[in-house]
Amino acid sequence: EPLWIRPDAPSRCTWQLGRPASESPHHHTAPAKSPKILPDILKKIGDTPMVRINKIGKKFGLKCELLAKCEFFNAGGSVKDRISLRMIEDAERDGTLKPGDTIIEPTSGNTGIGLALAAAVRGYRCIIVMPEKMSSEKVDVLRALGAEIVRTPTNARFDSPESHVGVAWRLKNEIPNSHILDQYRNASNPLAHYDTTADEILQQCDGKLDMLVASVGTGGTITGIARKLKEKCPGCRIIGVDPEGSILAEPEELNQTEQTTYEVEGIGYDFIPTVLDRTVVDKWFKSNDEEAFTFARMLIAQEGLLCGGSAGSTVAVAVKAAQELQEGQRCVVILPDSVRNYMTKFLSDRWMLQKGFLKEEDLTEKKPWWWHLRVQELGLSAPLTVLPTITCGHTIEILREKGFDQAPVVDEAGVILGMVTLGNMLSSLLAGKVQPSDQVGKVIYKQFKQIRLTDTLGRLSHILEMDHFALVVHEQIQYHSTGKSSQRQMVFGVVTAIDLLNFVAAQERDQK
């Protein structure tokens, strides 16, 4: 057995438009009618409502009807409940999964919650491996369901041993009777949507819809739904939504950006999952974080739909894509998950301010006199920076000697690579993860907040409520011999709460 199987392995699926269902090699399930009293909570997966979006479509000038398939009504709160249950049931049916076995899954959280929910009911041990950027709410729900959680670096490539995929496979090879159901490759993922989600949409719309818009992560949702719609409703256009920084969209030119990270969760990847059939997507749109969270908040405030950030991405694209539809036509959007997962993220004004998705003037509360002053007023001194090749031991000596707790790590040209902190280095040394002679590049981390000289002290204040420091950066445009230009970030300084307090105190003292 291989040590790991690539999540982007070539698909062996034989589905073709027009091929009889009787030739399918898979076990198919028909939607079942729910009894009045459910035998367990797993029976509350599927049969989610279709809700008309009344205000947002009109606000953006849509002539067509805009409908939302509300997947956050599933038992675990997301569309991923469907595939989690289906993968477990299919693994039980073919004898792969037996009582007492362990389920391991690399996930952005929602599939993990679905699997942990099913594992709690069915009696399996469950280990979820997820990147650090995923919300604390997801972690809390997983723990409450009895799952064990392993976190991995957000910026690790999918084929790196440190990625959530790599760590999951390492655990599988170490733990007896453990299984990775593997949402990236498992046919049960798109089949769950082909058999149930798509049929529900067709039934709820009486077979009449002209466009379907869905955000894409593993691709199982859009693949399964689109294949069924292509068979039953061939005139329906399928629109895929991919965040900026991901590479799922086609044509490839759409993916060209210097951005590699994004805040919206559960969609987009740096590889093409095996289950994603991009041939059934008629057109791709890219979405960005700001519009995703703005539209998610709009869905909550104006439509009462308590959905997550990827739902915002989907609707932001839908109001663009559906401009081509006329009166009497219908566009369906998939709202994948609930706001429950993001209470401390985009639902929080403070978080939105820190990330730059909300401006101070958007909030009406009274601010102190210094709130709208610029960061450049602080008069920061030149920063202490270190090269990635310097040793951890030497870096600790320098920081202690100069009285700093942290320093930016830059390359020879001064471009920011990340940050090192005294606390992080000492804990890594004590844990045996690094040696004093190791290069400081081994303990770089990139989960820090950046701020510009033109940003306000109010925004800085919000950042420092949650973080010990902020890195002050400025952009530099560099022209190359080819005539092309590129933008790079340079370090201007490091600012802490002490710097802000000293500035405010000094100004008030001078005024007296």
Rank of each mutant, 00 (worst) to 15 (best):
Leu248Phe: 02
Ser427Lys: 07
Ala506Asp: 06
Leu426Ser: 14
Ala301Met: 14
Lys286Pro: 04
Ala321Cys: 14
Asn255Asp: 02
Gly379Tyr: 14
Ser461Gly: 14
His372Asp: 14
Leu384Pro: 02
Lys402Pro: 15
Ala506Cys: 10
Ala301Cys: 15
Val434Met: 14
Gln302Asn: 15
Ser381Asn: 07
Asp270Tyr: 04
Asp289Lys: 04
Leu363Arg: 10
Tyr262Trp: 06
Lys402Phe: 09
Thr314Trp: 05
Glu412His: 15
Tyr262Asn: 02
Ser481Trp: 02
Lys286Leu: 02
Glu258Ala: 07
His372Tyr: 11
Glu361Val: 11
Pro383Tyr: 09
Ser437Asn: 14
Gln256Ile: 10
Met490Cys: 12
Gln354Cys: 04
Leu306Gly: 04
Val491Arg: 06
Gln507Ala: 14
Ala413Arg: 12
Gly414Asp: 14
Leu426Lys: 11
Glu508Val: 07
Cys331Val: 02
Val495Gly: 12
Phe293Ala: 02
Trp369Val: 09
Arg330Val: 11
Lys433Ala: 11
Leu464His: 04
Thr257Cys: 08
Arg297Val: 02
Leu358Ser: 08
Lys366Ala: 12
Ile444Lys: 06
Asp405Asn: 02
Ala321Ile: 04
Gln478Cys: 12
Ser485Pro: 12
Gln435Ile: 12
Leu457Arg: 02
Val281Pro: 08
Ile334Trp: 02
Leu457His: 02
Gln478Gly: 13
Met466Asn: 04
Leu254Trp: 07
Asp411Met: 09
Thr279Glu: 15
Ala506Gly: 13
Lys402Gly: 15
Met490Gln: 13
Gln447Phe: 09
Trp371Thr: 15
Glu263Tyr: 11
Gly418Tyr: 08
Ala318Cys: 10
Arg488Ile: 15
Leu399Thr: 07
Ala322Met: 06
Leu347Thr: 02
Leu305Ile: 08
Val415Asp: 13
Val333Thr: 14
Ser428Pro: 14
Asp282Asn: 13
Trp351Gln: 02
Leu501His: 09
Ala296Asn: 06
Leu417Thr: 15
Leu325Tyr: 02
His474Lys: 02
Val386Asp: 02
Met343Val: 09
Phe285His: 15
Gly393Tyr: 05
Thr389Ile: 14
Leu363Cys: 14
Thr454Arg: 06
Asp499Cys: 12
Phe469Cys: 12
Arg374Ser: 10
Gln323Gly: 13
Val472Glu: 12
Thr364Arg: 08
Ser313Trp: 02
Lys433Leu: 12
Ser437Gly: 14
Ala382Val: 13
Gln450Pro: 02
Ser428Cys: 14
Thr261Asp: 05
Ser338Pro: 13
Met466Gly: 14
Gly268Cys: 04
Phe469Tyr: 13
Asp242Arg: 07
His372Gly: 14
Leu387Tyr: 10
Val434Tyr: 15
Gln476Arg: 08
Met425His: 02
Tyr262Val: 06
Ser437Leu: 13
Asp438Trp: 15
Asp455Glu: 15
Leu430Cys: 09
Ala321Asn: 02
Ile477Cys: 09
Ile444Leu: 10
Val495Ser: 13
Thr389Met: 13
Ser287Phe: 08
Gln478Ser: 13
Gln439Cys: 11
Ile239Ser: 07
Lys286Trp: 04
Thr389Val: 13
Ser313Phe: 02
Ile444Ser: 13
Leu399His: 02
Phe469Gly: 12
Phe503Trp: 15
Gln447Arg: 12
Glu324Met: 10
Glu377Ile: 08
Ala301Asn: 14
Thr385Phe: 08
Gly423Leu: 09
Ser381Val: 10
Leu399Lys: 08
Phe492Thr: 15
Phe404His: 06
Gly268Met: 02
Leu399Asn: 06
Phe492Glu: 12
Phe295His: 02
Glu465Thr: 02
Val241Ala: 04
Leu422Ala: 15
Leu373Met: 08
Lys355Pro: 02
Pro436Glu: 13
Val410Glu: 14
Val333His: 02
Val281Gln: 02
Thr454Met: 13
Lys320Glu: 09
Asp362Phe: 12
Glu401Val: 13
Gly403Leu: 02
Val409Ala: 15
Ile267Thr: 08
Glu508Leu: 14
Gln435Val: 11
Ile451Ala: 07
Ala322Tyr: 02
Asp282Pro: 11
Leu426Gly: 11
Ala506Ser: 15
Trp284Pro: 02
Lys512Tyr: 02
Thr294Cys: 07
Cys392Asp: 09
Thr482Arg: 14
Phe295Tyr: 10
Val434Ile: 14
Leu248Asn: 02
Thr456Val: 12
Thr421Val: 11
Thr391Ile: 09
Val264Trp: 02
Asp282Gly: 15
Ile334Leu: 08
Met490Pro: 14
